[in-house]
Design a protein around this nucleic acid. Structure first.
Lengths: 331, 331
DNA sequence: CTATGCTGTGCAACCGGTTGCATGTCAACC
DNA sequence: GGTTGACATGCAACCGGTTGCACAGCATAG
C-alpha cells in the first residue's frame, strides 16, 4: 500500500524502491533527458507507487530558486489593492510561482519587518505603494530583486500608475462645467501617488486659472472623507477632487448629511476607480489600471530574475477620467 | 564593511567572525539560554556587523517547521474576503508565520492545484469558502492540517459564519414593516453559505407566513444583481434579500434605473456587510464577522499544529441584522 | 583528594534535495 | 583490435541551518 505517513516520501525511499541512486531520482524530475527512458519510467513508477512529491523547500535550499515571490501592500482591505493582488497572483501562477502576501497596515516599520521575514524564502519582492523611506527600500533592493508599484526610487525597476493625466482631465472637466473654485482633498503624506496627484491638480488649475485650495485627509478612508466636508465647504469651493474613491465616497456621504445635493450643488471626483459603478449616484473618477499594474509588476520581476540584470525599467500607465454621475454644471 | 553579496550571510561566516562553532551561532538564536550571556552577545554583535539574517528555508528543512501557512480564497477581489485576509494575516504575523495567498477564481480545479502547490511548503492550510468537493477536501486534510471557513466537512476543523440568525432577523424586520411577499436572490450553487441562507429565509418566511419566491443570480456580482431586477419585480414582491452585498447593490442600481424608489416602494437587504456604510443610500444588511472568522481560523490552525491532535472543532459565529436605509414600510 | 554533576561549547550527522565529476559500458571509428 | 567518445549512472559534496552526543572545565559533595 502507498505510504501515508505525515512526513512525506523522500527521494531516498524512491531510489531504494526503484533500485537506483538518489541522484537518478532527482534527475528523473529535473533533467529526464540525461537518463534512459526506461530508467525514468521505472523511477516514476516507483514514485507513483509510494506517493512521492518533490520537496519544494529542500529543492529551494540547494538551488537557491525558491519559486516564490512576495507582494507587500499597505492595506489589503483598501479596495484599490484586491484587484491588483488578484492580477499579480494569476500572473505568478502562470509561471508556477507562489505568492506571499504581506499587509503593512500603512506602517513603515511593519513594512520593513515583513521585507525581512519574506526575504529568506522568495526570489523577488513586489512593493506596492510603500510607505518606507527611499533608503530602506534601496537597502532591501540590494539583497534581493525588488519591483516597486507607485513609487519612484532611482535604480529600482517600477510600475507607475500616472494618475496625473487623469487628474488633469478631471480638472479640465470641472472647468468645462464652469467650476472656478475647487478643492483637492489629499491623502497620506508619504504616498507617492498623493504627491503626484496634488502636483497634477495644482498644475492643471494654474493653467486653467482655477482657484485651488487643499484639505487634508491624512488616511484614505470613508471617515476621513466624511470629516473633511466642513473644511471643504468652508473653502467656498463648488467641486472637490479626492485622493481616492473611498475618501470621495465619505465626502459624498457628508454632503448628503448636510443636504448638499450632488451634482446639483456640488461636484465630486474620485480617483482609482476602486468602487466601479457600484455606488449611487455613481462616482466620476480617474481610472486606476491597478490590474495591469499588478500583472506588469510580476512579469517585470520575473524578467529581472531571469536576466539577472537589474534593469532600471519603468513602466508608466496613463490614466483617464471616467465620467459618471457626481459631476455637473457649477451652481 | 558589511558583506553585501547577493547570496546573503551564512551561519558559518558569523561563526568565523565570532570565533565560535556554527552550532553556537544557531543556538544563540534558538536557545540562547544554553549559552553564556557573553557568548550570545559576541555572536549577536558579529551577526549584526555582517548583516546576518537566519535563512528561513534552511531552518524549515531541518526542523520541518516551515513557519508558513496558506490561505486560499475563491476571489480576492470580492469585498467579502479582503478584511478576512487581512485579519488572518495579522493573526499569523503575531505568531511569526508568513501567509501564502491563493486565488482559486471560483474554480474547483484551480483550488485543487493551489492546494498541491502550497502543501510542500506550509505547515497548514486555510480554505475559505471552498468550491471543491468534500472528498477532495478530505483527501488534502489527510496530508496536512486544514481548517475550513464557511464549509462543513465532517472531521475537519472549521469556522462557520452562521448567517442564518441574521437572515432570520432580516425576514422578521421585513415582516414588521408589513411586507408579505419577498424574494431571496440566491448566489453560487456550490456555496455552503448560499444553501444556508436560502434555508434560513425559507424557514423564517414559513414561520411568519410570508410568501417567498426565489430568483437566481448564479455568481455574486453587481451585474448579476442588476439583471435579476426584472425577475424580482415580476414576482410581485415588495422586498428582496440578496445573497450578498454586491448583488444587493446591483439590485439597487437596477431599481433606480426603473424609477423604483428605495425604501419607499421597495426594500432591499444585503448580506455580509462587505460594503459598510459606504453606499448611498446605505444598505441594510447582515453582519458578516469575516474579520473574526479570519482571525479565528488562523488561531485554530495554529492550535491544531501545536497540539498535533486533529481536533474536530467548529466555531460558529452568529450574525445580526444591521439596519440602515434600504428597508422601510411596505408600500 | 577523588567521585559526581552541571554548564558551556564543539563535533558531526542529518533534513531532502541538486550537481560536478568520476566511472563503467558499449558502439563506432581508424 | 585497440582507441575514442558518447551515454547512462553513481558517488560525494554541498545548500544553511538544527540537534544529539561527547567532552572539557569547574564547583560541590563525600
Amino acid at each position: 500500500m502507498a505510504a501515508e505517513r505525515k512526513g512525506g516520501v523522500t527521494i531516498s525511499q524512491v531510489a531504494k524502491e526503484a533500485g537506483v541512486a538518489r541522484s537518478s531520482v532527482s534527475r528523473a524530475y529535473t533533467r529526464p533527458d540525461m537518463l534512459s527512458p526506461e530508467t525514468v519510467e521505472r523511477i516514476k513508477a516507483a514514485a507513483g507507487k509510494l506517493g512521492y512529491v518533490p520537496n519544494h523547500t529542500a529543492r529551494a535550499l540547494s538551488t537557491g530558486r525558491y519559486g516564490n515571490l512576495a507582494l507587500i501592500v499597505p492595506d489589503v482591505a483598501n479596495p484599490f489593492f484586491p484587484p491588483m493582488i488578484r492580477a499579480a497572483q494569476v500572473e505568478a501562477d502562470r509561471s508556477d510561482f507562489c505568492v506571499f502576501l504581506g499587509n503593512s497596515d500603512e506602517d513603515p516599520e511593519k513594512e520593513d519587518q515583513l521585507l525581512g521575514r519574506f526575504s529568506g524564502q522568495v526570489e523577488g519582492i513586489i512593493l506596492a505603494s510603500p510607505r518606507l523611506s527611499d533608503e530602506r527600500i534601496a537597502a532591501h533592493a540590494l539583497l534581493r530583486p525588488l519591483v516597486l508599484i507607485n513609487r519612484d526610487v532611482k535604480g529600482i525597476p517600477k510600475v507607475l500608475i500616472d494618475s496625473g493625466t487623469g487628474i488633469a482631465e478631471a480638472t479640465q472637466h470641472l472647468a468645462d462645467f464652469g467650476h472656478r473654485n475647487i478643492v483637492y482633498v489629499s491623502g497620506p503624506s508619504t504616498s507617492w501617488s498623493n504627491k503626484q496627484r496634488r502636483a497634477a491638480v495644482r498644475r492643471a488649475s494654474k493653467k486653467l486659472g482655477l482657484e485651488l485650495s487643499f484639505v487634508s485627509a491624512s488616511v484614505p478612508s470613508f471617515e476621513a472623507g466624511l470629516q473633511a466636508v466642513d473644511a471643504i465647504l468652508a473653502k467656498g469651493a463648488t467641486a472637490a477632487i479626492a485622493f481616492d474613491d473611498v475618501t470621495a465616497q465619505g465626502i459624498l456621504a457628508g454632503l448628503g448629511e448636510r443636504g448638499v445635493s450632488v451634482p446639483g450643488e456640488f461636484s465630486v471626483v474620485g480617483c482609482d476607480d476602486a468602487l466601479g459603478p457600484l455606488t449611487v449616484p455613481s462616482l466620476t473618477t480617474v481610472s486606476s489600471r491597478s490590474i495591469e499594474a499588478g500583472k506588469l509588476a510580476v512579469s517585470l520581476l520575473l524578467e529581472v530574475l531571469e536576466s539577472q540584470a537589474v534593469r532600471d525599467a519603468s513602466y508608466v500607465l496613463e490614466t483617464h477620467l471616467i465620467i459618471r454621475s457626481t459631476t455637473g454644471k457649477a451652481p
